[in-house]
C-alpha cells in the first residue's frame, strides 16, 4: 500500500465519527418531521399517547417517558454518587495497594456485566425485595433507579479514582505534616484538586443513565402513566423505543423518532459539557 493511500484511508476513517454523528442527527430529524409538524414543541409537555382506531393518526406526547427517564436517572444519581465517591476514596486513600488492585478489578468486572443481566437479576431477585420492604408492585421507578445506580457506580468510581490519583503526593504530605486527618486531606486537598474530573465523571454517568435501555426495560414497569409514588411503574424514552418502536406506524413512528432525537440531543449536550468544561481540552 502506498503511503498516500494509507494516509487518505486513515483520514477517511477519522472523519467517519463526524459523519456518523451528523448522520444520526439528520436521520432522526428527518423521520421526526411529521411529529414535529403535528405537535411542535408541546410534544415535550403533552402526556397523551394515543393512536386513532385506524392506526393512521392520533395524539402523541412525550411527557410521560421524558419524566420517567429524568426521575429514574435522578434516583440513580442520588444513590450512585455518594457510593462511587466512597469507593474511589477507599481505592485511593484507604486500601493497601494490593487490596486496592483486587477491588478495582472487581469493580471493573461489575462494569463489564451486560446490562440485560442487570435487568434479569433485578427483575427476579431485586424487585421482590423492593416490593417487600417499600411496597408497590416490585417493578417501578425505585427498582429501576437502584439497579441503574449499581450499573453506573463502577463507571463513576473508576474515573473519580483516576482523577484523585493525579493529586501530587507533595500536596498531600504537606497537609498531613500540618496535622490534617485523612478526611481533611481528602476534603481540602484531593477533592479540590480532582474536582474537574469528579464532576466530569458524574456528568458522564448521568449521560449513561439517561440512555440505558435494557436494565430499565425489565424494571420500570413499561406502562404509559405518570408515577405518583416512587414505587409506581412508568416508562422511559429508551424503554418505550425498545418495546414499541418496531410495531409503531406512521405518525406514532415519527413520534418515536422525535423521542429518540430528544434523547440523542440531550445526551450529546451532557457528554459535550462534561468533556469541555470539566475534563478540559487535554493536550495529549
Amino acid at each position: 500500500m502506498s503511503g498516500k493511500l494509507f494516509r487518505n484511508f486513515s483520514f477517511l476513517s477519522a472523519t467517519l465519527s463526524f459523519f456518523l454523528l451528523v448522520g444520526i442527527f439528520a436521520i432522526l430529524f428527518t423521520y421526526a418531521q411529521d411529529a414535529m409538524h403535528a405537535f411542535g414543541i408541546d410534544f415535550l409537555f403533552n402526556e397523551t399517547w394515543e393512536a386513532d382506531e385506524d392506526d393512521e393518526g392520533g395524539v402523541f406526547g412525550g411527557f410521560i417517558p421524558i419524566v420517567g427517564t429524568l426521575l429514574s436517572t435522578i434516583i440513580a444519581m442520588v444513590i450512585a454518587t455518594p457510593l462511587a465517591m466512597g469507593i474511589a476514596i477507599f481505592l485511593t486513600e484507604i486500601a493497601s495497594p494490593k487490596i486496592s488492585k483486587g477491588v478495582s478489578v472487581a469493580i471493573e468486572l461489575l462494569a463489564a456485566i451486560p446490562s440485560i443481566i442487570y435487568g434479569m437479576w433485578g427483575l427476579f431477585y431485586f424487585a421482590p425485595i423492593v416490593q417487600k420492604t417499600v411496597g408497590g408492585d416490585g417493578v417501578g421507578l425505585l427498582t429501576a433507579g437502584i439497579v441503574l445506580a449499581i450499573m453506573i457506580i463502577p463507571f463513576m468510581a473508576s474515573i473519580t479514582r483516576d482523577s484523585m490519583n493525579t493529586t501530587p503526593l507533595v500536596l498531600k504530605e504537606s497537609a498531613y505534616a500540618m496535622g490534617a486527618t485523612k478526611f481533611e486531606v481528602i476534603k481540602d486537598v484531593i477533592m479540590p484538586y480532582a474536582k474537574g474530573g469528579i464532576i466530569g465523571s458524574i456528568i458522564l454517568a448521568l449521560g449513561r443513565a439517561l440512555g440505558e435501555t435494557m436494565a430499565v426495560a425489565f424494571l420500570i414497569g413499561s406502562v404509559m402513566s405518570l408515577p405518583h409514588r416512587i414505587t409506581d411503574p412508568t416508562t422511559s424514552i429508551p424503554v418505550l423505543l425498545a418495546n414499541n418502536f418496531a410495531e409503531a406506524q406512521d405518525l406514532e413512528m415519527s413520534a418515536m423518532y422525535y423521542l429518540a432525537l430528544v434523547l440523542f440531543v440531550v445526551s450529546f449536550v451532557i457528554i459535550s459539557a462534561a468533556k469541555f468544561y470539566f475534563f478540559g481540552k487535554k493536550a495529549k
Binding site: 477519522a14 472523519t15 456518523l20 449513561r208 439517561l210 423505543l241 440523542f264
Partner: peptide
C-alpha cells in the same frame, strides 16, 4: 474528531438501533 468520537462512545445504544 477526537471529541466527537468520545461523544459517540457515550451515545445511547438504543438511538443507534433507531438510526
Amino acid at each position: 474528531i477526537r471529541n466527537l468520537s468520545d461523544v459517540m462512545m457515550s451515545a445511547p445504544s438504543i438511538v443507534i438501533g433507531v438510526f
